Structures are given as C-alpha cells and as structure tokens.
Computed example of a mutant assay.
Amino acid sequence: MTHPPLPDLILEPLVRAALLEDLGTYGDITTRTVIPAGTRYTALLQAREAGVASGLQLAALAFRLVDPGLTVTAHAVDGDTIGPGSLLMEITGEAASILSAERVALNFAGRLSGIATLTAAFVAETQGTAARITCTRKTTPGLRLVEKQAVLHGGGFNHRFSLSDAILIKDNHIAAAGGVRPVLQAVKARASHMIRTEIEVDRLDQLAEVLDEGGADVVLLDNMTTEMMIEAVALNAGRLILEASGNMRLERVAEVAATGVDYISSGALTHSARTLDLGLDF
C-alpha cells in the first residue's frame, strides 16, 4: 500500500530542530574553514544494504532548509524496497551546504529506514494469515509521527498516536478502578460514542468478563502463551477485535499470526530497530 507523503509544513519543525542542534551556535566551522566559497559538487545518497526506504522526505527537507539553492533529485521514495548500491537521492549545489546538512539527513533516513525494514520483516511473517502488524507508543520522544510513518512504509499499521486518540484500559487502570466490570461500566456511562475502547487482559477469565459486560471494541491479549491465544480466539468467536502484545519477537510472529488474532503489536518496531546503513558521497 502506498502512503502519500505528509505536508512539509508538518515535518519542517522536526528537521529544523535537528539542524539547529547540529549546527550549534556558530554553524559548521569545519566546512567554513576548509571548503572555498563557491565550490560546487554533486552528492549521491545511496543504500549500502538492502531494506525499505523511509525518511527520504525528511532528508530532502534538511538539504533544502540549509540551502534552498540546492537541487535535490529523488531517485526513490519512502516505502520503496532498496538494495545495496541503490541510488536514493542526488543533491547538487554548494558543497558547504551539502556537508552542513549531511548528518541530519542521514540520521533521519537511516533511522526511519531501519524501522521500515524491521516492520517489513514482521509483516512478511504474517503471510497467509489475516493478522496485521502494528506499532505502539514506545517511540523516540518528539519523533513519534515520523517513526509511525516509517511503520506504514514497512507495510505495518499504526496504533494510538497519543493518549487522546482512544481509550486503552491497561492493567493498572483495572487495578485502580476495582476490576474489569467497573472500568467497562465507566466507559459505557461516560465515554463519547465517537471514541473506540480497547481493554487489556492477561487471563481468559478476564476476556470472558469483557465479553459478558460489553463496552469494548478491542481486547489486547497481553503476554499470553500461544495456546492461550488460540483459546481466546475461540472464546471470542469473532465478536471483538483481538490484538496480541507482549514479547512479540520476530521469530514468534508467524506462530502468533496463525492463532487467528487480528493484530500483533510490537514496541520493538520503533524502540529496537537497527539503523539502515546509508551513505552520502561526493
């Protein structure tokens, strides 16, 4: 599935903040010292290993923010499958400008391509099932939007973007409110009809309570064994959406998907993805 790019207006504050952090109080003193003014070059942004591209829009924005006079030519777009040596972007103009934006551009593109690549690996393990891979809120502070976008580029789906998106009742909510039934009764009494509700359970008797009480749209099966998930799917009988979460390692995904759950969520997609090796060379 192709996802349209976000407006640059939304992404610009993220890139601008990263550039300000990197340029410090006095700019790129190395480049200003050793590169004669007016020196022009063409730089190639290339992949050094296979993966799925993401963050290229942010990389291009980094170059343009440093110097609107740079010519940035895209040879790949976010979501493309890439291989070693794939040309992703060509940047032509003042060498000093290219060098000053290089690290920020690579940081975004490498980090986000790593997330997209790991997501694609998870998605591949669900082939032949109806299960979808989704991320969590375990993201880098300030970068949630683009990290979740990278999950989409890898073929996954997005969970909540913030606490205000939906009601997600977790174990601590249940404990503080006095049980499964009281929290669901509170939802039915107080929640807007426009808001969806998910509740976390880690036992089958809790799932039975949820099904009996009503008030939830989605049930999160937390840290259940595969055998318990199979029982949960049978008990649910298609009534509510089921999401499996907790200890969702890549090597376990196919087994979990085969249980019949609708979604598999993993924080590892965003908090443990390895940066994809990309390089910028003149």
Rank of each mutant, 00 (worst) to 15 (best):
G51V: 07
G27W: 12
I91S: 00
L87A: 14
T73Q: 05
S54K: 05
A50D: 06
T31M: 12
R32G: 15
Y41M: 13
R40A: 14
E49G: 04
Y41P: 05
R32Q: 14
A59W: 02
L44D: 09
A37F: 12
I29A: 14
A59T: 00
L44R: 15
L45Q: 01
G51L: 13
Y41S: 15
F63S: 00
L70D: 05
T81F: 02
P68E: 01
G85W: 05
T71E: 11
L87W: 02
A47Q: 07
D67G: 03
A76K: 06
T39L: 13
A59H: 04
L61I: 03
G83A: 15
T39C: 06
H75W: 11
A59R: 03
D67E: 12
A43I: 04
V34K: 07
D78I: 03
S54Q: 06
F63G: 01
A59G: 10
V66I: 15
G69P: 01
R40W: 08
T73Y: 06
T39Y: 02
L56S: 01
V72P: 03
T33F: 11
L56T: 02
V77E: 12
H75C: 11
A76R: 10
A60K: 06
S86Y: 07
P36V: 13
A62G: 02
A43Y: 15
G27M: 01
P84Y: 09
L58T: 01
I35V: 15
P68A: 08
T31Q: 06
I35Y: 13
A37N: 12
L87V: 15
Q46S: 15
T81Q: 13
H75I: 07
G51D: 06
A43D: 08
Q46H: 10
G85D: 12
S86C: 06
A59D: 03
F63Y: 14
T33W: 15
I29H: 10
E49N: 10
